[in-house]
Nucleic acid binder design. Structure first.
Lengths: 163, 163
DNA sequence: GCCACCTCCTTGACTACTCAAGCATAGGGT
DNA sequence: ACCCTATGCTTGAGTAGTCAAGGAGGTGGC
């Protein structure tokens, strides 16, 4: 318990940190949404979903695992997948051994479009964390701290430098 | 303890950082929402809104300024304010010199309830950034980095240690 | 073989926002 | 005094998610 502390040094306030985290995310999401929807007609959530599919073996995942990976509920995944199926980026596949599960699979088109989106997303991220203001060290520190603060990682792998 | 890791760092990927930021926020928001709604019947957004009102001179703000401060649109504020007015935490006040503006003002009840919420919120934040895993330095660094990454600050002041 | 239970997924109803349109008021130029 | 434009706010429609309920399919005990 921190003592009522008359220091001129603000004493880091966790609540303040939390609120800043919320704010920073909102700004970031807006930026991504603007670019992704403008250039590819998808939202950041859509892109994230596709990214996960793209990283999964065979480009397909059970919807329940997708939910887990994205930090959403199963119904959120159902709803998010629907428009992507409609526009042909994702297809629905049934599992041979278990008729309950419906895989979500990246279509060939989906894979191509994803590569383009990834390019855009990288650019947006690079702009947001412009080298001018962000040293590689800063970025590393932020990533580490966010990983500790966050639920689980978006993905274990440091992301392949392809595309 | 804080270990300056001997990473085989594969070049920090800004996109990865961005996605982690999104994830971390989602986890945090869920946590706040759970506690705040359980104990006080409000969401984190509600709380943030009330916080801003509480910090404004006279406990009241024009809706348009509130929107600006919260990073929302004017219509988001109208909609967010409605339930808080219904439950009596916020009242609507008209401006004498400009009939267009409708202030949102904290009621006495609202002020009291806000103090309780603030207590809860601080506790949640402190738990999330538990001292066990987060040194004051880590927290400070994260705050600084988030401020640089984020839109603007939730508030300039380091927050009064009251409550 | 059958029943109980558990898992995967979808659906209906709700919340919290967004944008675009619209109304009322303000204020300056003429 | 009268427009013209800008500002403050609300509203209708749409999007992205939530939770709770429910259907369909799998599985193990007996």
């Amino acid at each position: 318990m921190t003592i009522p502390d008359p220091t001129p040094t603000p004493t880091p306030d966790p609540l303040d940190t939390a609120l800043r985290l919320v704010r920073a995310q909102a700004a970031l999401v807006k930026r991504f949404d603007a670019s992704l929807s403008g250039l590819h007609g998808v939202s950041l959530s859509d892109f994230t979903l596709l990214l996960h599919l793209g990283q999964a073996p065979g480009g397909r995942m059970r919807r329940v695992d997708l939910a887990e990976a994205l930090g959403l509920t199963a119904s959120g995944v159902t709803r998010g997948l629907a428009p992507l199926e409609r526009i042909g980026l994702v297809s629905r596949e049934t599992a041979a051994r278990d008729a309950r599960v419906a895989y979500a699979a990246l279509t060939p088109t989906g894979r191509d479009r994803l590569a383009e989106m990834r390019y855009t997303a990288r650019k947006v991220a690079a702009e947001h964390f412009a080298a001018e203001r962000w040293s590689p060290d800063d970025l590393d520190r932020l990533t580490t701290l966010l990983t500790r603060a966050g639920g689980t990682a978006p993905d274990q792998r440091p992301v392949d430098p392809a595309s």
